[in-house]
């Protein structure tokens, strides 16, 4: 599982940081998403999928390659 973020699209509402706090954080200065792990272990997959669904700006992409 690979997570890719697009900082340019992010609007800093923090949905991802709530859905998968192990994977996403926010910069204190402007709220923009910070990717904590680009290859999160499988146990966080559901949280990441939720973040993708909830992200209002389509700023998160999940590639489920193996």
């Amino acid at each position: 599982m690979r997570v890719i973020i697009d900082e340019g699209r992010c609007v800093g509402g923090g949905r991802c940081a709530v859905a998968a706090p192990e994977v996403f954080d926010q910069r204190d200065s402007d709220g923009v998403v910070v990717l904590l792990r680009a290859d999160p272990p499988a146990e966080y997959a559901e949280g990441v999928r939720n973040a993708v669904m909830l992200c209002p700006a389509a700023a998160i992409e999940l590639r489920e390659e193996r």
Binding site: V11, G12, G13, G14, D25, Q26, D28, D30, G31, V32
Partner: peptide, 13 residues
């Protein structure tokens, strides 16, 4: 504007 303010409303804050 959004960038200027979003940092004040983060989940952590």
């Amino acid at each position: 504007y959004r960038r200027l303010l979003a940092g004040r409303f983060t989940v952590r804050r």
